[in-house]
Design a protein around this nucleic acid. Structure first.
Length: 464
RNA sequence: GGCCCCAUCGUCUAGCGGUUAGGAUCCAUGGUUUUCAUCCAUGUUACCGGAGUUCGAGUCUCCGUGGGGUCACCA
């Protein structure tokens, strides 16, 4: 297998959103799949829009999901002299030229073209200019794009793409302040970094012919391109901030496990037969960008939630306890840790919900919801609970495990000739202050006899 | 608007000329359970429309429709 070099190249203008994370994941997986290299490059040539916080947020998101990049992060803002060298070369070769058109002139031209219902484009007026340049205008540098013919390339996702050369105008590769522009630096860096495969969103499809112009002008080898279809919202429209969590780190705050998020994202646009659950190792082993879907997919929370619940359920307790620390639950050293987690991990779709479940057990209820108590407490309830306390206090054997407590409940229902329902719900409300939650036997085993009795007694006092 | 891309259950998807169109999620029902959840079983729901090619089309071609992307001295 050929070792690939892939990259993720965000611009630090905002947080990392899930669409970006998915393309990064695809790139990362493909590199790992081939035993190749995955790199991170920051596209920060637009000095005005860069932000330090955005950069940190992106790095942080990568850390959280556990995607590692090799080598140093490449910052384009630190490579300006390299780009200048290539621009000078193109100028010298006559493959690029200075254009003295001012912004205002350009705007006017575009307005005229739009009025004539033409596609706004640069008219090439300085392409072969040999006269005296106008005074007071700092020129931009434009690259000579083919005036006719087709620019063709094979996209690993979309197939054969051909775009008329006339659709690509002599685009600007360096602004009047000398800073090179996106399509130029992307091509230069992708080539210089030895990229074999470029996986990116299909909103970049139209940049590809432009970048190919640069590759050809500079004599670089053209990499394989994969343009991944977008992720839309539930309505099939472009994902925006209004669609809730789009910031990757927001998912952490909401209680999602990174493995669930990654599993969710990898299945958006990619599949392997009927398989739904993929460990990272399986993803790496099976992923191939050539299997990527052509069509856009809609973002839907249900599947993510289901996956998250799955990963929570199947996570070893020791690891779960560590993860839970971020959600205010500190039970790593708790002597009933295993019992606590076994009793609750199937009841939370998110870590936030799981933390709530655990809090319910660990902290005695401060008050009792009136609706719950009305439902759970009948006339004979107080007496039943008191009998139960009495049984607990006089139980001849030590009470440790859930089965021990189960035996006590068993004895109670037998002695009093009642159903489990008579004791179960009142007991639950007494211990948790809630109608739902973990199994009674487990809860009591976690609390211990003393705390169990204390909570029941408190409840019987509070409730008339 | 020009150019480009896309189109299977509500959603994520399998399918790669011959299938009772499969799986997952969601939803509903039943079972298990002292509650809830888990788990198990069952069920409802899809090939955008129209031509063509072919013995045969969800699969190939064309047209239409719908959706998306893109047209910066942003990335």
């Amino acid at each position: 297998m050929i070792m690939t070099v892939t990259r993720f190249a965000p611009s630090p203008t905002g947080y990392l959103h899930i669409g970006g994370l998915r393309t990064a994941l695809f790139s990362w997986l493909y590199a790992k799949h081939t035993g190749g290299t995955f790199r991170l490059r920051i596209e920060d040539t637009d000095m005005a829009r860069n932000s330090e916080e955005a950069l940190e947020a992106i790095i942080q998101a990568f850390e959280w999901v556990g995607m590692s990049y090799e080598g140093e992060v490449v910052y384009q803002s630190k490579r300006l002299d390299i780009y200048k060298k290539y621009i000078d070369y193109l100028l010298a070769e006559g493959k690029a030229y200075r254009c003295y058109m001012s912004k205002e002139e350009l705007d006017t031209l575009r307005e005229e073209q739009t009025a004539r219902k033409e596609r706004p484009r640069y008219d090439g007026r300085y392409r072969n200019f040999t006269g005296t340049p106008p005074q007071g205008v700092e020129p931009v540098i434009r690259i000579k794009a083919p005036e006719s013919g087709m620019i063709e390339f094979t996209d690993g996702v979309k197939g054969e793409i051909s775009i008329a050369g006339s659709e690509v105008d002599d685009f600007i590769i360096a602004r009047s302040d000398g800073i090179p522009t996106y399509n130029f630096v992307v091509a230069v860096d992708d080539a210089l970094m030895g990229l074999t495969d470029v996986i990116r969103g299909d909103d970049h499809l139209y940049n590809t012919p432009k970048q190919i112009v640069v590759y050809k002008a500079l004599g670089f080898k053209i990499p394989n391109f994969y343009h991944v279809a977008m992720i839309n919202n539930e309505q099939g429209k472009k994902l925006s901030k209004r669609d809730g969590a789009t910031d990757v780190m927001e998912y952490k705050a909401l209680g999602y496990l990174p493995e669930a998020l990654l599993n969710f994202l990898v299945r958006l646009g990619w599949s392997h037969k009927d398989q739904e659950i993929f460990s990272i190792e399986e993803m790496i082993a099976l992923f191939d960008p050539n299997d990527l879907n052509k069509s856009a997919s809609n973002y839907n929370l249900d599947k993510l939630l289901w996956l998250n619940a799955h990963y929570i359920k199947n996570m070893p307790n020791a690891k779960l306890a560590i993860v839970l620390k971020e959600y205010g639950v500190h039970i790593e050293e708790h002597d009933k840790r295993e019992l606590l987690l076994d009793a609750t991990k199937e009841r939370g779709k998110t870590l936030v919900e799981l933390a709530d479940q655990i809090h319910l057990i660990l902290n005695a209820p401060q008050n009792y919801d009136e609706k719950d108590t009305k439902k759970a407490f009948k006339e004979d309830t107080k007496e039943i609970l008191e009998d139960f306390v009495h049984l607990l206090q006089n139980w001849e054997k030590p009470l440790h495990l859930p089965v021990d407590y189960h035996a006590v409940m068993q004895r109670l229902v037998e002695d009093k000739q009642i159903g489990f329902g008579k004791i179960g719900m009142p007991l639950r409300v007494s211990l948790l202050g809630s109608m739902t939650g973990a199994g009674m036997d487990e809860i009591m085993a976690i609390l211990g006899v003393d705390e169990t009795i204390a909570r029941i007694q408190k409840a019987t006092v509070c409730i008339k």
